[in-house]
Design a protein around this nucleic acid. Structure first.
Lengths: 184, 184
DNA sequence: AAGAAATCTTGATTTCAATCAATTTTTATC
DNA sequence: GATAAAAATTGATTGAAATCAAGATTTCTT
C-alpha cells in the first residue's frame, strides 16, 4: 500500500494525534517568513505552494497536493525560524500534527518508524532528482520532464508558479508550451 | 559530539561492520554510471566528487571530504543502477560498509538509529539549502555563499569542479574570483 | 452578467553568462 | 629539474533567456 496512505492511517488511528483542522482560502498564508513552524500538514483537499522570496521575486520550491503531506521542512528539522512561506493556491483543507506528536509515534511504533525512514529517504531521493534536473537540463528539457513526471501540476497550479518552480520567467514558459506543442 | 564522529565510532566498535578498506589513486573511479552501489563510504583521507554527465559535460553534485561519509545516494536508497559517478580527486583512503550491515546496526541499536535519523534529516536540510541556492542566487552570489560556507572547498577541489558545482563555466568562476576580490 | 483585475501570450530589445580562442600558470611525469 | 600536459586566466564574440512593453484571455468580484 502507498506510503502516504499508511502514515495517514496510523495517525488517524491514534487518539489526539491530529492537533487541528484548518481551512484556508485562496492566497491565504499558512506560514510566513521569519516564523518557526514545526507542524506537519496533511492536505485533505486543495493545493499549497512553498516559496521563498528575494529582493526581486518569489521562488516556488515545492507544491502540496491533495492527499499529501507538506511542511516547512527547514523549520521542521531545525525547529528554528525559516525564510519560507506556505500559501494556499486555492481553497484548502488541512489536518495538522505537531512534530512532538509525530515523533512520539515514530518512537513508540516500529511500523510507523519504518515508514518515516522510508519517507525521509524518499525526500532525499526526490531532492537529488530535482537538483540534477535544475543543474543538467535546459529550460525546454526541464519543462518536458516535469510535464512527463507531474502532469497534474499543470492542472492544479497557475503557470506563473510553475515557471518559478522551473527557474524561468512566465514568458519563457509560455513560449516553450507553444514550441513543445509544435514538436509533436 | 559530532554526529559523524559518533556514527563512525559505533561502526568501528562493531566487529565485522566495515567490509573493506580501499585505496584510490587520483582520478580513479569508485563508481561509474549504470552500476548499482549500495555501499556507504567513509573517507579516511583524501577527497572524492560525485558527478553526473550529460551529452556535453559533467555536473558535480557533491564532494566527499576527509572524515565524512559519502555514497551514491540514489543507488543506496533505491538499490538500483544509478547515473552517478564517484571519482577520487586525489589519493584517497576509504572504509566501506554495506547497506545491509549498516541497516542491521540501525535496527539493533536505538542510539545508532537516532543518529541515522538525524543524518537523514540533515541531508534533507542540506539539499533544500542547495536547491534554494541554485534557484535564488546569481552566479556571483552563489560563489560568495559557497566561499563563506565551505571555504575548505577551495583548498581541496580544483576550480573546474567547483565551477560545475556552482552551475557556471570555469571562465565565469575565474572572472568572479577577480571581481569579488576587488570588492573587498 | 458586467466590469475589474490578474494572468497569459506575443513581439522587440537587452543583458549576462556561455562559447570560442589564445596565453599564462600550475601540476604531473620522466 | 626539464618537459609535457592540464588547468586557469583573459579577451572577443555569440546566443539564449530575461526584460520591457503591449495586447488578449481568463478569473474574480459584486
Amino acid at each position: 500500500m502507498d506510503l502516504l496512505v499508511q502514515l495517514h492511517q496510523i495517525i488517524d488511528q491514534t487518539p489526539n494525534a491530529w492537533k487541528d483542522d484548518l481551512q484556508l482560502k485562496r492566497n491565504e498564508y499558512l506560514k510566513v517568513k521569519g516564523s518557526t513552524d514545526t507542524n506537519l500538514y496533511y492536505v485533505e483537499s486543495g493545493c499549497l505552494r512553498v516559496f521563498i522570496e528575494d529582493e526581486f521575486e518569489e521562488h516556488s520550491i515545492r507544491f502540496g497536493y491533495t492527499k499529501n503531506f507538506i511542511a516547512a521542512l527547514d523549520s521542521y528539522i531545525t525547529e528554528k525560524p525559516s525564510p519560507f512561506y506556505i500559501q494556499a493556491i486555492r481553497k484548502t483543507e488541512l489536518k495538522v500534527i505537531e512534530k512532538a506528536a509525530f515523533m512520539n509515534l515514530v518512537n513508540s511504533n516500529i511500523e510507523f518508524q519504518k515508514l518515516w525512514l522510508q519517507m525521509l529517504s524518499g525526500l532525499v531521493y526526490q531532492q537529488l532528482e530535482r537538483e540534477v534536473d535544475i543543474l543538467t537540463y535546459s529550460p525546454a528539457e526541464r519543462y518536458k520532464r516535469v510535464l512527463e513526471r507531474s502532469p497534474q501540476l499543470f492542472q492544479e497550479v497557475p503557470s506563473k508558479y510553475i515557471a518559478s518552480y522551473l527557474r524561468m520567467t512566465p514568458e519563457t514558459l509560455s513560449r516553450l508550451k507553444k514550441t513543445v506543442l509544435n514538436e509533436l
